[in-house]
Design a protein around this nucleic acid. Structure first.
Lengths: 196, 196
DNA sequence: CTTAAAAACTAATAAGTGTTAGTTTTGTTG
DNA sequence: CAACAAAACTAACACTTATTAGTTTTTAAG
């Protein structure tokens, strides 16, 4: 009934999506053609449509996979015992690890989301905004229980998220620093600025 | 001999470049068509070519204008008396102000540079790398003279540059926080993590 | 081996791309 | 006003785009 699946646990659709993430990262969504993607997959362009619905569907899959991963981790963390500092540290470390381990997809979600079509674009932005709001609430909690300095929580969240996002520039320097040093130094730098 | 110039001190080429920055920011370089740009300028697409050479020339102008602004400010700062902390603080403040006052162009330079054509792409990356290197040297100096903690200087520079870059998300929240609070809180957050 | 579906292929389409050619309008100067 | 150049316009070209239609090949099941 069905063909043998390509990878170990990956459907061909998964392979296409992954190759798409790599291509979109390198050239950007709009500059990536289905012919190029097909070549990366090892097939002619129209054959892709036996597995996927459209080009924009690929972008949707990538963006929401990433967004859902972050949302899920935040769900877990919120339902965990522990002080606020530890929660925030764990979240920062999760962001760093996502950047290092799922670079292509996170990069695409961060850079190419604006090419999502409605209603996916709106949904993505709403989800993203909701995520930020929850981090801000976490910051405010930390301030209230005297774990954090009384700095504007939005600025703190913005600073942290942006700094972690900047790990995309890190990829080129992977050889020079161990990722453990990177993670620890960055966490330290970001927490020292807000912890009391 | 020549027509009256559009704005006060701006040539029509300047107007086109500025509209291009706004358009490229909103839709991305590749998704922006010359017909759209023409409409923003209030003209038919082929008329643009009386003032500019090509679409990619517009991107070059935007990217290098931004890159040169940062390089120039660093030149000035390096030739200035003062301790390292103050120099770094001034540089951070300059980055923040560039983000707030030249948002479109800085955004495009940060996001669309990969669509530059050779040799401009290579030149841009070389210039960017050189800028980072000089900041790293500044960090190392600060460590040597005991103004900064002995943290990996590359990680510190990366964290700072990325955090400031993240001000692009700030635009939506302009109403809620004064830009002075933003600037001061962010500078504080970033410096506290490295100052001894 | 037969059968049937899954997935590859070729060919084609309609729309949009940056850009050039050629022409007309506009605006300034002598 | 005459003359000339700057800058607008229309028409068009050569090319690329995502996607569909229709057909053939491949693969798995009975």
């Amino acid at each position: 009934m069905a063909k043998i699946k390509p990878g170990r646990n990956a459907t061909k659709k998964d392979v296409i999506t992954q190759k798409a993430a790599s291509l979109f990262k390198r050239k950007g969504y709009s500059s990536s053609s289905m012919r190029e993607l097909a070549e990366a997959v090892g097939v002619e362009a129209p054959s892709l449509y036996n597995h996927i619905g459209s080009k924009s569907e690929l972008l949707q899959a990538i963006c929401f996979k990433v967004a859902n991963a972050f949302t899920s981790y935040l769900d877990e963390t919120e339902n965990t015992a522990g002080n606020v500092v530890l929660k925030l540290e764990n979240i920062i470390r999760f962001h760093i690890q996502m950047m290092l381990n799922n670079f292509d997809e996170v990069y695409v979600a961060n850079h190419e989301w604006k090419h999502l079509k409605e209603p996916y674009l709106s949904n993505f932005l709403i989800q993203r905004r909701g995520y930020e709001k929850r981090l801000i609430v976490l910051m405010e909690t930390g301030i209230k229980v005297k774990e954090f300095k009384n700095k504007n929580p939005y600025v703190s969240v913005l600073t942290i998220l942006s700094a972690v996002r900047g790990l995309e520039f890190w990829q080129q320097h992977k050889k020079n620093i161990s990722s453990q040093v990177l993670e620890d130094d960055m966490v330290d730098h970001l927490l020292k600025g807000i912890i009391k």
